[in-house]
Design a protein around this nucleic acid. Structure first.
Ligand SMILES: [Mn+2]
Ligand SMILES: [Mn+2]
Ligand SMILES: [Zn+2]
Ligand SMILES: [Zn+2]
Lengths: 136, 136
DNA sequence: TGCTAATTAGCAATTCATGCAAATTAGCAA
DNA sequence: TTGCTAATTTGCATGAATTGCTAATTAGCA
């Protein structure tokens, strides 16, 4: 994801307004490695801006996602997580506490797939299930 | 997943009753490669047994899943899908029509993962995103 | 400073799934 | 075959996550 300053320019350039709510969310997401849910961000945002609405958090996050600045991660349990890391990477989730971490997988492009039967593959998502150091 | 006959025995052996509703769902799921949702199965089941409830479909599917006879597949869009194929395998989903197909991936166990940082991995789910032959 | 289109907030609605309890029934024992 | 009882089925209520809708507000520009 771009920096808050760069996002400010990018938004204005597209005719989108840069509101205090959006600026706060730019800051909260920039460099964020927690893979937070919308609710989690709403909670963080509310601490700094009481009265901000959950609706606005969802709105801004999906706006950023459709601009390609965020990725949506579905770990198959509860709410979707938002990820400012848009580099090619994958995830481990701890079955104990639900923590999600970025992992980089060598050779995932070259996996030998059997049974494609006419399907063509555009992208690959790998989710590793396991335990973090504290939950082990 | 075991055959309907084998499941009948397995259920009785555990003190679970074998109802017409369950028998129908055993038959509908056995060898089913569609990865159906609960709603989809409910629709098929209703055609053969008007009055069967969606609640019972969910109940029976989760019972089978906790017995290890079914796997739950979350493709990150809409409802969970149920899979009687419990062999080690992965999935391709067509972004066009949502069809899901089984694929077998060589070497997924030996992927070189960077950044685990204390996480230990128990299992791996690979989801390929692409297009089926008709949606290409 | 004023205009206007974009945005926000709040509440309704939707989708998928689970909780609950009354009515029914499978499976066993007599 | 009959009757008992615990398991099951239903239908409805509830819950979690997300999107739809719209009146009130505001950013950005003339
Ligand atoms: Mn990530
Ligand atoms: Mn499958
Ligand atoms: Zn953990
Ligand atoms: Zn398709």
């Amino acid at each position: 994801m771009k920096s808050p300053t760069e996002l400010t320019e990018a938004f204005r350039a597209t005719g989108l307004k840069v509101t205090p709510q959006r600026q706060l969310l730019f800051r909260l997401m920039h460099g964020n490695t927690m893979h937070p849910t919308a609710e989690a961000l709403y909670s963080e945002a509310s601490a700094q801006m009481p009265g901000i609405s959950l609706r606005t958090v969802y709105q801004t996050l999906t706006d950023l996602a459709s601009m390609g600045e965020l990725r949506l991660i579905d770990v198959g349990a509860g709410a979707v997580r938002f990820d400012p890391n848009v580099d090619e990477h994958h995830h481990v989730i701890c079955q104990g506490c639900g923590n999600v971490r970025d992992v980089y997988v060598a050779g995932s492009q070259a996996l030998h797939i059997e049974g494609l039967d006419g399907f063509s593959v555009d992208s690959t998502s790998i989710l590793f299930h396991g335990s973090c150091a504290s939950c082990a």
